[in-house]
Amino acid sequence: MKTKVFKFILPLLVIVMAVSFAFATNSTSDNQIAHYFDPLFGWQSVVIGDECGPVGENACEFMGKQLYSQPTTESIALRKD
């Protein structure tokens, strides 16, 4: 009798806990996708933090290459303060 109860209750408890933990987590950082042009590989994407945006004094760069909001040089060049 005990094993039947444990075989049913234990997996159910684990599933309920997994679902509750999935909803309990909260992401605090807003990551965004930026794009840069590599002469060998073309347009590449990279995840950046929220420090880069459309305004600022300094250019946002990844490995020495200017970051853009879209994979084209006509898009907004990302900058930071």
Rank of each mutant, 00 (worst) to 15 (best):
V46I: 11
C52I: 03
S75P: 10
Q44H: 13
L10A: 10
L10T: 02
L12W: 00
P11E: 01
L10Y: 05
L10H: 06
V55Q: 10
A22K: 09
G42S: 07
T73V: 13
T25R: 06
P71W: 06
Q32N: 08
Q32R: 07
F23M: 15
L67P: 02
I48D: 04
T28P: 04
E51R: 05
T72N: 08
H35Y: 14
Y68S: 13
S20T: 13
K65H: 07
F8M: 06
M1H: 12
G53I: 05
G49S: 05
F37T: 06
T28I: 06
A18E: 04
F21W: 06
I33R: 02
L12R: 07
K7T: 12
Q32T: 00
I76V: 15
E74D: 15
T25I: 12
A59H: 07
L67R: 01
V16R: 04
E74R: 13
S29V: 14
P39N: 10
A59Q: 08
P39S: 14
Q66A: 06
G49V: 03
M63C: 05
A22G: 15
P71Y: 13
M63N: 14
M17T: 04
I76E: 09
S27V: 14
K4S: 12
M17S: 08
S29M: 11
G56Y: 02
L12G: 05
Q66L: 12
L12A: 03
V19N: 14
Y68W: 15
I15F: 03
L13G: 03
T72R: 09
L67N: 03
N26T: 14
L40K: 05
T3G: 08
A18F: 02
N26D: 13
N31E: 15
T28E: 10
F37G: 09
C52Q: 01
L12F: 08
L10P: 01
F21L: 15
V55A: 15
T25D: 15
V19M: 15
S69Y: 10
A22M: 11
A59E: 06
M17F: 13
Y36A: 01
L12E: 02
E51F: 02
V47D: 10
Y68N: 10
I15V: 03
S45Y: 07
G56I: 01
P71K: 07
D38H: 04
V47E: 09
Y68G: 11
F21I: 10
G42P: 02
F8V: 10
P11A: 10
F62A: 08
P54K: 01
V5C: 11
A22I: 06
K7A: 12
P39R: 09
A18I: 01
A59G: 07
S27A: 12
H35V: 05
P39F: 06
I33P: 03
P11D: 01
V19K: 12
F8H: 03
V5S: 12
S45Q: 13
T3K: 13
E61T: 04
D30R: 09
C52N: 01
C60S: 03
Y36L: 01
G49P: 06
H35K: 04
